[in-house]
Amino acid sequence: MEAVVELEEVTVSYNEEPVLKEVSFSISQGEKVGIIGPNGAGKSTLIKAIMGLLAVDQGNIKVLGGSIDENRKKVAYIPQKEKIDWDFPISVEEVVMMGRYAHLGLFKRPQKEDRQLVNKSLEEVGMAEYKERQLGKLSGGQKQRVFLARALAQGAEILLLDEPFAGVDQTTQEAIYALLAEISEQGKTVIVVNHDLKRVEEYFENLVLINQRLIAYGTAETVFTHQHLQEAFTTTQKTKSAQKELVVIG
């Protein structure tokens, strides 16, 4: 399968200290990939770097064989804990229509085909009946579905979701995963950040385990070894206790 997202020795920092160090992996078309790691591991940073919202210090990121700027229309990004004003005067339909903006260009209003695509996307996520509803008057899971519909309406080939399940109950979570599975069966690549390790092996074909560095990449069996997990989830504590010892000795 063709690689759609390729990272080569990618280092990213906000200030001086890098938060991602020399991360390399590549994701093939149609894959469902889970990005896992503890809080502060750099998962959101990784996604933002792929989206080109953060500059990389070193290394190279290729999306669909080129730069992200060449392929923006084909990549949909649903950020973590949407900094969305839920009281915004906007309907569900209008939110999904925004997925079409990438294709419309300046001065052009949405056409009939755009409206049809919006309807189709809303149907796919089971939200067609809420079309007219003001966005804020939906439950957490319904809101997530609306943003998923927006990604579908965009016609994206790659979907990047950052912790889509915060504040979403188990049933809705399963429904959204089922939806993501369908999307990936259509040949689209789905990349989901999830720091909850429960059942990730059922949902994803491959996992990326990171904690600043790439710790492991592959199927759940290869990633979930005792050594990998210890490396990912205990390094920070170790350094802290090491520091403590130093203080005591000093």
């Binding site: 989206m51 080109g52 919202l53 700027d69 923006r72 229309k73 990549v75 990004y77 950020p79 949407e82 900094k83 969305i84 004003d85 915004f88 906007i90 939110v95 925004m98 903006y101 990438a102 419309l104 300046l106 001065f107 209003r109 927006r150 965009q154």
Partner: peptide, 21 residues
């Protein structure tokens, strides 16, 4: 009026606005 669509997206979701360029 000319930039209504862009302004709306910019106010509502500037991350999407940025990510579509």
């Amino acid at each position: 009026i000319l930039f209504f669509k862009e302004l709306k997206l910019f106010i509502f979701d500037h991350i999407l606005a940025r990510s579509i360029g």
